[in-house]
């Protein structure tokens, strides 16, 4: 027996099965991201004065990535319109752009993550705290922590400090960046015995990076999942267009709704994590 309403809508609700299903799923997603946003608010308002990390993310790259995701949302909805008009070739081109945008978004996000993993904070015994990069034989190492200094048996490290610190206000940080023309200071040598803590910008660095990586990695997983579904419908799943076009259009619509939701989440994540 065929399952009813897989392609045609029910008369009473005007909806086909998958559409009800995706909206129920999106409702659960709202609660998932809502809970994490709620955690963010609690952590932020409870943070000690001057301890909340801010101003360390790359805003131009984040802005570009936002534009990439918005573009993909436009191509998704246009591809659905193209299918509704019966133009399969146009749909194919537009969804190919969507998939490229998704890969572009993930590639840029990976680059941003890497930048964070080789950026450090040093806490010194005299109470001074420095941000910057470690220069280890001309390379910038990733993921070093306090224990790494002992493991590598280092007496000192060469550190290239930034001209700013997140304990400054946003205005002071912007001024310090301009003053240093965006460049780093000259390298300084810090004795290992003077270091109480060393951490790259990983989740363990601070509460901010903990919630930053949780939110953005979960979002990136959604981008990856959405891209895989869209790519499947675009590629091997496209056979359905010939046998049951109405159902195929429904699949494109449902995957598109998920994609727009992913875009919607990023619209809130971007200002909250990058700008505020």
């Amino acid at each position: 027996m065929d399952i009813p309403y897989v392609a045609q809508p029910r008369q009473d609700t005007g909806l086909y099965n998958a559409k009800v299903g995706i909206w129920l799923f999106l409702a659960s997603e709202v609660m998932l991201f809502g809970a994490l946003f709620s955690s963010y608010i609690i952590l932020r308002v409870g943070a000690a004065p001057g301890s909340w990390v801010h101003g360390l993310l790359n805003i131009p790259i984040g802005t570009f990535n936002t534009a990439v995701l918005i573009t993909s949302s436009v191509t998704v909805v246009l591809s659905w319109s193209a299918l509704k008009a019966g133009n399969f070739a146009k749909y194919r081109v537009l969804q190919a752009i969507t998939i490229l945008c998704a890969l572009g978004f993930l590639g840029i996000k990976s680059f941003e993550y890497r930048e964070k993993f080789l950026h450090y904070e040093v806490w010194k015994t005299d109470g001074t705290r420095l941000l910057g990069h470690i220069d280890y034989n001309g390379t910038h190492p990733l993921f070093w922590k306090t224990e790494t200094l002992a493991q590598q048996k280092l007496d000192s490290i060469k550190f290239v400090p930034d001209p700013y610190h997140y304990t400054m206000t946003a205005k002071e940080m912007a001024h310090a960046r301009k003053g240093g023309h965006g460049k780093e200071h000259e390298p300084v040598t810090i004795k290992t015995s003077e270091i109480t803590r060393l951490s790259s910008f990983v989740p363990a660095h601070s509460t901010y990076f903990g919630i930053y990586f949780t939110l953005t990695a979960l979002h990136a997983l959604h981008v990856l999942g959405g891209a895989i579904v869209i790519a499947f419908i675009w590629g091997p799943g496209a056979k359905l267009w010939k046998t049951d076009p109405d159902r195929y259009i429904n699949r494109v619509e449902v995957s598109g709704l998920f994609w727009h939701f992913v875009d919607l989440v990023w619209i809130f994540l971007f200002p909250v994590l990058y700008l505020l």
């Binding site: 609690i42 952590l43 409870g46 000690a48 806490w123 803590r197 660095h205 509460t207």
Partner: peptide, 16 residues
């Protein structure tokens, strides 16, 4: 409602 009732050990000042 819970904004000033952050669970102990969930916030880090940076000193570890």
């Amino acid at each position: 409602f819970a904004r000033d009732d952050t669970p102990l050990g969930t916030l880090h000042t940076g000193s570890g």
